[in-house]
Design a protein around this nucleic acid. Structure first.
Lengths: 191, 191
DNA sequence: AAATTGACTAATTGAACAAATTGGTCATTC
DNA sequence: GAATGACCAATTTGTTCAATTAGTCAATTT
C-alpha cells in the first residue's frame, strides 16, 4: 500500500541521514533500509533534496509541539522564554539528525545541510516572534519589533551556550537566566 | 642591516598573506618579495606561524590606535560604544588581510587563519571590556560584569551586521543605534 | 492499468600513485 | 657573525582510471 511505503521511506531516510549525514546518504541505501525499490522513492519525492526537506519539516513540527507544550506550562513571559530556549537547545543537542547535520556543516560545509539547519533556525525565530508579540499585546513587555526582539533573544542565547561556552566554559541555567535579566530585560541604562 | 631585513620580511609577509591567505603563502615567496634568502626569515621568526602571529599583532595594534582615537572624540559611553563598534567593523571590512583571512576560513577552514581572527576578536572584547568598566565606575551605566557586557555588546553588533544583513538586508547606522537603545540600554521589562 | 522494480547512464566522486611543493635545516659563502 | 639557497622528509597537488550515485524508464508484478 502506497501510504505504508511512503512512511517506510521517510523512516529509512531519517535514519540514514542521522547516521551518515546528508551527503553520504545514498538513495540506494534508503531504498534498502525501507525495503522498497529505488525507483519507488521517486514516486513520492522528486529528488533527494525534496526527501530531505520533508524530513526536516517533520523534525520542525516535532520541535514545535514540544515548545507549545512548554508554553502552556509557564505563566510569565520571561519564564516561558527561558524554558522554551532551553527546550530548543536540548532538542537540538539530543536529536541525532540535527547533531549529525551540525557536524557535517562544520566538517564539510554541505550546502543542503546548512539549508536544513537554517530552516530550523527560521522556525525557532518564528515561534519566538509570535510569543514576543503576544507578551507585548498583553503588556508584559514594552513595545518593540517582535521580529527584532526574537532575533536578539535567540542570538544572545546561542552566543552564551556556544561561544561563551568555548572560551569560558559552560554556564548554568541560573547564570544564563541572570544574564538575560540584566542585559535584555533591565538593560544597562541608569534610571 | 638586521633591522631593515626584519622590516622587509614583515612587509613582504603582510602583502603575501593579504593576497594569498595563510595557507597559500610560502616562505620562499615571502623571501623573494622581501629580497632576502629564505633562511634569513628564520633568523627572526622560528616558524611560519610565528611570522603570522607577529603580523596579526601589528594589525591589532593598529586597530587599537584607531579605536583609542575614537574614544577621545566622544563624550558619552553610548556614543563611544557606537562609534567604536562602527570603527571596528569598518576596519575589519576594509583591511585586505582580514578580508582575505575571513574568506579563507569560510572556503577552507584553515585553523591558523581562524586562530588569527579569534585573537582579533579577543582584542576587541578586551577593549570593550575596559571601556565598559570605566563607564560603570563613572556611573554612566548600571553595575554589571564588564566581561559579559562586552561579550553581549559585540555578539549583538555582529549579529546585526552579519546575520540580519543576510536575511533582511543591511541596517543603517541609525537602525542599529535604535536597536542597541531598545534592547540593550532600556531593556524589555515594563517599568 | 497502475504500481513497483532494479538495470542503465551521464556526471560526479574517490583511490592510487608519481610529481611537485613546502617548511625548516644547515654547510657554505660573504 | 650574518646571510644564503641547496637539501630533504613530509606534505600537497595533479592526473588518470575505477567506482559510485541521482535520476530515468523499460520490464515486471500486482
Amino acid at each position: 500500500m502506497a501510504a505504508d511505503r511512503k512512511k517506510w521511506i521517510l523512516e529509512a531516510a531519517s535514519k540514514s541521514f542521522a547516521l551518515f549525514g546528508y551527503k553520504a546518504t545514498t538513495m540506494e541505501q534508503v531504498a534498502k533500509i525501507a525495503g522498497v525499490g529505488k525507483g519507488t522513492i521517486y514516486t513520492f519525492f522528486s529528488t533527494k533534496e525534496e526527501l530531505f526537506d520533508a524530513i526536516m519539516m517533520d523534525v520542525i513540527q516535532e520541535m514545535k509541539r514540544i515548545a507549545d507544550k512548554v508554553i502552556q506550562e509557564e505563566r510569565t513571559f520571561i519564564k516561558k522564554l527561558e524554558r522554551v530556549l532551553e527546550e530548543f537547545y536540548r532538542f537540538r543537542s539530543n536529536h541525532e539528525l540535527l547533531i549529525r547535520l551540525s557536524h557535517e556543516i562544520s566538517e564539510m560545509g554541505t550546502a543542503k545541510a546548512q539549508e536544513g539547519m537554517k530552516s530550523l533556525e527560521g522556525a525557532i525565530l518564528g515561534f519566538l516572534e509570535k510569543n514576543v508579540r503576544t507578551a507585548m499585546e498583553q503588556g508584559e513587555i514594552r513595545p518593540c519589533d517582535p521580529q527584532v526582539a526574537a532575533f536578539v533573544i535567540l542570538k544572545m542565547y546561542v552566543s552564551f551556550v556556544h561561544d561563551w561556552d568555548r572560551t569560558h566554559g559552560p554556564l548554568t541555567k541560573e547564570q544564563i537566566s541572570e544574564f538575560f535579566h540584566v542585559y535584555l530585560f533591565e538593560g544597562l541604562a541608569v534610571r
